[in-house]
């Protein structure tokens, strides 16, 4: 099959999988509720348990899964294109974890009382700070390897500091909370979380997608991209801000869901080609699809307590990811 056929095929597949997984996601949950019944009640204007569960719990959760999956995978694809390195992703570089740290500090030390916007704002500032720090520390001659190593160090430090902050927080459920922030979860999310994260994620998406052509040009290296008329500094700012906005908003409501940002672009490259710009939107769709599926599985698995969704994304994606690396090792150089 030619690449163009394959990319059309995968676009169709992605576009079909999202409504399918969306439906499955809506239909799964800890309580038995008929979603169709809920929708019917809603249309008739009746207040029923089914309609309440649908509109207050299931729907925001499923939409969040789509938006967060889209944000994380889009950010991963953007960072891989910017650094010209397949090892980059917001969680690997510590961008997500720094966002988590900021959210945790704000949330558990009472600062969130100032308003609903404080948590996503803190998470985004944290993410932005991490991204800025990486680029500042890497200095003027930024090799991708330096940037990734700095990111890994920041990730480890902020992870430790998050645990520390949670331990000292006046909160009896610290251990459970650590799980939530470290592995990520979409349980117990409501329309409030959706509404406060969505605008920031949208801004991030627009910023990242506006750099599509620049990322394509970066395939030829920074010097050539510059000679092709791109304002490297401005494009980098746009991209890093976009990643911070979408990743920050995502982690503010779902914790650090790992692996999606790293994995999805890799899964899609054999199907849609390696052009970094083109990969952006496909990756977003792929991330949305995978997170919907993972969040559905989390709810279907039996157990006293719901599994963190990050466990499933890594457990699902890991083996497939390894398979792809082995299959493509000659291409990856």
């Amino acid at each position: 099959m030619k690449l163009t056929d394959r990319s059309g095929f995968s676009l169709v597949l992605l576009l079909l999988s999202i409504p399918l997984f969306f439906y499955l996601n809506l239909n799964s949950g800890p309580t038995d509720a008929s979603i169709l019944q809920g929708i019917q009640d809603l249309i008739r204007g009746e207040q029923s348990t089914d309609s309440l569960i649908f509109i207050e719990i299931r729907l925001p959760r499923a939409i969040l899964a789509i938006c967060i999956g889209f944000s994380l995978a889009l950010s991963g694809a953007a960072l891989q294109g910017l650094l010209i390195n397949p090892l980059a992703s917001p969680d690997l570089l510590g961008v997500s974890q720094t966002g988590v740290l900021a959210a945790v500090i704000v949330l558990y030390y009472g600062l969130s009382a100032f308003g609903w916007f404080i948590i996503p704002l803190a998470a985004m500032s944290g993410a932005l700070l991490a991204a800025a720090l990486i680029f500042i520390l890497a200095g003027r001659y930024q090799s991708a390897l330096t940037i990734i190593l700095i990111g890994i160090a920041i990730n480890a430090m902020t992870m430790a500091m998050t645990s520390l902050a949670l331990n000292f927080a006046p909160n009896p459920f610290a251990l459970q909370e650590i799980y939530f922030w470290m592995l990520g979860s979409l349980s117990n999310r409501s329309n409030n979380e959706l509404l406060f994260a969505l605008p920031f994620m949208l801004v991030g998406w627009v910023l990242i997608l506006s750099c599509k052509r620049f990322l394509d040009a970066m395939s030829l290296g920074e010097a050539t991209a510059k000679s092709l008329g791109f304002n490297i500094r401005q494009q980098k700012y746009l991209l890093v801000t976009g990643v911070a906005f979408s990743t920050g908003a995502a982690v503010a409501v779902s914790g650090n869901i790992s692996f999606i940002g790293l994995m999805i672009p890799h899964l899609l490259r054999p199907l849609v080609g390696h052009e970094p710009g083109r990969l952006l939107f496909y990756s977003g769709l792929g991330g949305a699809s995978l997170l919907l599926l993972a969040d559905t599985l989390v709810q279907l698995l039996p157990g006293a307590q719901e599994l963190q969704v990050g466990v499933v994304t890594a457990a699902l994606g890991g083996p497939f990811f390894l398979y792809l690396i082995f299959k493509n090792r000659h291409v990856l150089r």
Partner: peptide, 28 residues
């Protein structure tokens, strides 16, 4: 950039792209 083009040493291409995608970048 429309008037002056730069050809880098070694002509590095970082991703395994199709030839025509690389050429198209010249129209950026």
């Amino acid at each position: 950039a429309r008037q002056l083009a730069y050809l880098e040493q070694e002509a590095r291409i970082n991703w395994p792209l199709l030839t025509e995608r690389v050429i198209e970048l010249g129209r950026s």
